[in-house]
Simulated assay, not measured.
Amino acid sequence: MDRAQKQESIETLKGVFADSGAVVVTHYLGLTVAEMTDLRLRLRKEGAALKVVKNTLVQKALNGSAGEAGDALFVGPVAIAYGADPVSAAKVVAQYAKDNDKFKIVGGILGQTTILDEKAVKALATLPSLDQIRGQLIGLLNAPATKVAGVLQAPAGQLARVFNAYATKDAA
């Protein structure tokens, strides 16, 4: 890899760290190509991606913003999982690590400066995704309006039933 390619890789990694909600750092030693492809497909379904990275290039891309704890994550054969939603990559990676003993979660970086350990990444994976939170919020906002409409319609419905009862009583 020549100097220009390294610089291009560093710029790409800077973009990944800037645009991602969270970056999950993993060790993939012992995984087959088929297993890595399966993981990439699972991540892609959730809007996330997996990239095998060179540790020195990542450390240059972070430029010390993650500190020594962040640099310590990038030792050995490292792949990073990332996505715009902080939870999506963590969920898929945590599930895959549970199913496959060769795949290990090392830690993560949240917002370029907050370092997460393995337990924190697994805790992040248990949170609802951004889409789920939006759905819950819309449901909460719609619930009072639905209840108000039901309350307003109830007296009118009762009044209509009373009129109908009088009308059928007079007809009989």
Rank of each mutant, 00 (worst) to 15 (best):
M1L: 11
M1V: 10
A4W: 00
E11G: 08
T12K: 15
A18V: 09
G21L: 09
A22H: 03
A22L: 13
V25D: 02
L31T: 12
V33F: 05
A34L: 04
A34S: 14
A34K: 13
E35A: 13
M36K: 12
T37P: 02
L41D: 06
L41I: 07
R44H: 12
R44K: 15
A48D: 05
A49G: 09
V58W: 08
V58H: 05
V58Y: 03
K60M: 14
A61H: 07
N63I: 02
G64M: 06
G64I: 12
G64W: 08
G67M: 11
A69N: 08
A69L: 13
G70H: 03
A72Y: 01
V78N: 14
A79K: 04
I80E: 04
A81E: 09
G83S: 07
G83N: 05
A84R: 12
D85Q: 12
D85E: 06
V87P: 06
V87Y: 05
V93G: 05
V93H: 02
Y96N: 06
K102H: 10
G108A: 11
G108Q: 06
Q112I: 00
D117L: 02
A120C: 02
K122P: 01
A125P: 02
T126E: 15
P128L: 08
I133F: 01
R134V: 12
Q136S: 08
I138W: 01
G139C: 10
L140N: 11
T146W: 00
V148Q: 01
A149S: 04
A154E: 10
A154D: 03
P155H: 06
A156S: 11
A167I: 09
A167Q: 13
A172V: 11
